[in-house]
Write a protein that binds this DNA or RNA. Structure first.
Lengths: 232, 232
DNA sequence: GAATTGACTCGTACAATGTACGAGAAAATG
DNA sequence: CATTTTCTCGTACATTGTACGAGTCAATTC
């Protein structure tokens, strides 16, 4: 028992040796900490993708031994959870905007959300498995507030939140997938062309090619918001 | 080179020994085949989830050696791809419905889609990574056709398809996640309660508890369809 | 019928990876 | 100084995907 770390903050006592006299470590590596681990994990994920995050590699980047991480973190999953939630932190825009423009607020909220995830494409793949971290909850809370202030009835609130959330999730995942498979994209349309008798419609519409992701996203968003407010 | 299998069908020459005289194999195991491998993989996934699919385990279930699978399949990823697409096969409902009821068709299409995925909850987690298999394409094709016949302009077609697709994806993933974390659900609301000052809205609406997933899904769908047809 | 080829199976072995364990170092505390 | 707490990390192991190559058996060719 007595889980080593639990919720312990890294209360480092400010190890104030300006330089270790024996210059074994050329780099003045700051000490390990949960924050540093997560930040570096995000770096690594951004640079190498989901598959690139190995505990050993992460430790290397931190100038630490692999097992040192495990004092701060229970396991790799926790690193991923924390990395995901970190990336989802909502930085309130300086201009809050007039509170009466609820629709603009919602749209801003969701666009920002989607943008945050697209900045870190690996985050999309984590969504299906990981739990909701505090930053995710903040976003849901803000969304709920905006909708509520827009006059969405309490009975419809959850449905509204989930619908919009689903839109973000779906759009982000789709977008991220097609970014990753990049070169596949042409190949995919090729494959389609070969079987164009079976898929005439999507072959003709070139569904897998020139897609206006941003446009699709905001259009779908408009439809949802229209619908949500239409039935009051 | 000469990739062992490539697109080769398993053209088994019908090994017609009714029973091997020396009863070494009590079980009349049918021979290995891509179909059997994928079918068994789906079984395993249904029974044990994504993490439960190990090549050795799969081979065991098939009464084969682990490495035998690799003649039929390039790697584990391919097994997952095939399992996902198998599960997404569209079985056309016997009553096709009148062609003029395009909206009913679309709704049926998407409900069926979602139902197929929820029957196999592991499929949701695969969506972000895997490519589009033939069965997925069939579904997109049918969706495109229905929308097209509904009068959606060609210019809007892709946007419409993707919006609806995103809705299915998002809803399915959200739903599957909350199914899996089941017991977490109560815990999640607890955690929320502890921090209810920070998340008053979603705490009050009990967002993480009593959710009417089916209702949310069809309602959001209605909004999207309304919007899609409203602007003609 | 003998030899060859090709389709298919599978045991062994290895590399990669997450992490249990426990020995320490270093700082805080008494 | 002694003791406890906090933190680091080398070693070792279990798990898992899969490369390799030998082996089996039927079909084909000579």
């Amino acid at each position: 028992m007595a889980a080593k770390r639990s919720g312990a903050q890294n209360r480092r006592p400010q190890r104030d040796d300006v330089s270790s006299p024996s210059g074994a470590e050329p780099r003045g590596e700051p000490p390990l900490s949960l924050e540093r681990i997560v930040a570096t994990a995000v770096e690594l994920l951004d640079a190498e993708g989901l598959g690139g995050l190995k505990m050993r590699r992460l430790a290397d980047r931190l100038g630490a031994g692999a097992m040192s991480l495990y004092w701060h973190v229970d396991n790799k999953e926790e690193v991923l959870d924390l990395a995901l939630d970190t990336v989802l932190e909502y930085r309130r825009s300086p201009d809050v905007g007039e509170p009466e423009d609820w629709r603009g607020q919602v749209i801003h909220l969701l666009l920002d959300w989607r943008a945050a995830m697209l900045r870190h494409p690996w985050s999309a793949a984590l969504l299906p498995r990981r739990a909701l971290g505090p930053n995710m909850l903040v976003r849901l809370e803000l969304l709920g507030r905006a909708l509520s202030s827009a006059g969405v009835a309490d009975a419809d609130l959850n449905g509204a939140i989930w619908s919009l959330w689903n839109h973000v999730i779906g759009a982000t995942i789709t977008r991220a997938k097609f970014d990753l498979t990049d070169d596949d994209q042409a190949a995919a349309q090729m494959r389609l062309a070969g079987l164009s008798e079976r898929y005439p419609t999507i072959e003709r519409s070139r569904l897998l090619l020139d897609n206006d992701w941003d446009g699709t996203f905001t259009k779908g968003l408009d439809f949802l918001l229209d619908g949500l407010t239409a039935n009051r």
